[in-house]
């Protein structure tokens, strides 16, 4: 069978090439800048050699680039890509431009898991580094099961409105439990507070690999559901008329979003606004078609969060701001600008 002869399809190859270049350039920039600046060219060369397994000169630059900054920036990029992709998918699925990963309540569930792990110092045999991560993912999955069960009990058709309502209610409930736990956290208050505002300072190659695996699996599934998300954007009945198996597709998207959000929250804490703002910005460039919105959100999310992280660790150096604070500050302003641009008459 001959290949795609589809009208109104995805991004052209040169679009992907430009996005890859932009992401790589931003990555090199973010690795090169910091309390100790390394020239951009040296950084790019070091990363290039490391990728191809070539000999690298020993020294402080090598340690800073490969052992300290690169894993953190890579984890940040993957987190940003995942959160933005989840936001774009949720906005399409729920036909609601204010939806993102946190709408489901999964983000709050993962946060509760991580806070519980920090408080109780939970660790798993053989995986001592991954106590917070695994607990957060388990709680994220538990939240999703709870939301879907409650939605099904309230409405057998599991309409998107019911799911949104349950997600919002559960989010508020879980957030109040987190506040309660934080109030009784004693000497762990600072680490919990810092974590709930988002931080990727501790991210290493292990976290990067987990994020990459999650993005490859769950993100791949989300990217493959672009046509279904287009159909959902016209309403559930319209999607059904087009031949979309509404309930299985909805469940697939929700599970993938929950898994990705769970992994991201477990690594970087609560990072707001990425899933909300980036898909809106992507639509300004490409229009509403999810065949373009999803991949563009993925790349733009990576670039946005890398730059936000760069700001967080350099703007009042040596003090490091929580990344969630930076994304919320920048995101809120950007959201208002985009909102007014879209409302401006032709």
């Amino acid at each position: 069978m001959r290949r795609a002869d589809r009208p109104a399809g995805g991004l052209p190859w040169y679009g992907y090439a430009a996005l890859c270049l932009l992401t790589a350039a931003t990555l090199c920039l973010c690795v090169s800048l910091g309390s100790v600046a390394v020239p951009f060219g040296d950084t790019a060369a070091a990363i290039w050699k490391a990728v191809w397994g070539l000999e690298l000169p020993q020294g402080m630059s090598r340690t800073i680039i490969l052992n300290v900054r690169l894993p953190r920036v890579l984890a940040t990029a993957l987190c940003g890509a995942s959160l933005a992709l989840c936001g774009a998918a949720m906005q399409g699925l729920l036909r609601n431009p204010l939806a993102d990963g946190s709408t489901l309540g999964v983000s709050a569930g993962a946060s509760l898991g991580a806070v519980t792990a920090l408080l109780l110092e939970i660790s798993f045999p053989g995986l001592p580094f991954a106590g917070t991560m695994i607990t957060a993912m388990l709680f994220a999955l538990g939240s999703l099961i709870l939301i879907l069960s409650l939605s099904y009990a309230a409405d057998r058709g599991m309409s998107t409105q019911t799911i949104i309502l349950m997600g919002v209610v559960l989010s508020m409930f879980v957030t109040s439990i987190i506040s309660l736990l934080t109030a009784f956290s004693g000497d762990k208050l600072r680490s919990i507070t810092f974590w709930t505002m988002g931080s990727l300072s501790g991210a290493g190659y292990t976290e990067t690999l987990v994020l990459l695996g999650a993005l490859a699996v769950f993100g791949g599934v989300l990217l493959s559901r672009a046509d279904e998300l287009n159909a959902f954007s016209l309403g559930e009945d319209a999607a059904r008329h087009m031949g979309v198996a509404v309930r299985p597709v909805k469940l697939t998207v929700l599970v993938c979003v929950a898994a990705l959000i769970g992994v991201c929250v477990s690594v970087g804490g609560s990072i707001g606004f990425v899933g909300l703002i980036v898909p809106h910005a992507a639509r300004l460039f490409t229009g509403a078609n999810h065949r373009r919105v999803l991949p563009l959100s993925l790349f733009m999310g990576a670039v946005f969060l890398m730059l936000a992280d760069l700001l967080a660790r350099t703007v009042v150096s040596p003090i490091e701001l929580p990344i969630g604070v930076v994304t919320s500050l920048v995101g809120a302003v950007a959201f208002v600008v985009i909102f007014f641009r879209r409302r401006r008459p032709c």
Partner: peptide
């Protein structure tokens, strides 16, 4: 009740799903 503004061609293309 479209949630987003597609072009006419995109809208019609969805019929090919």
């Amino acid at each position: 009740a479209a949630g987003y503004a597609f072009t006419v061609e995109e809208l019609v293309s969805m019929g090919r799903y």
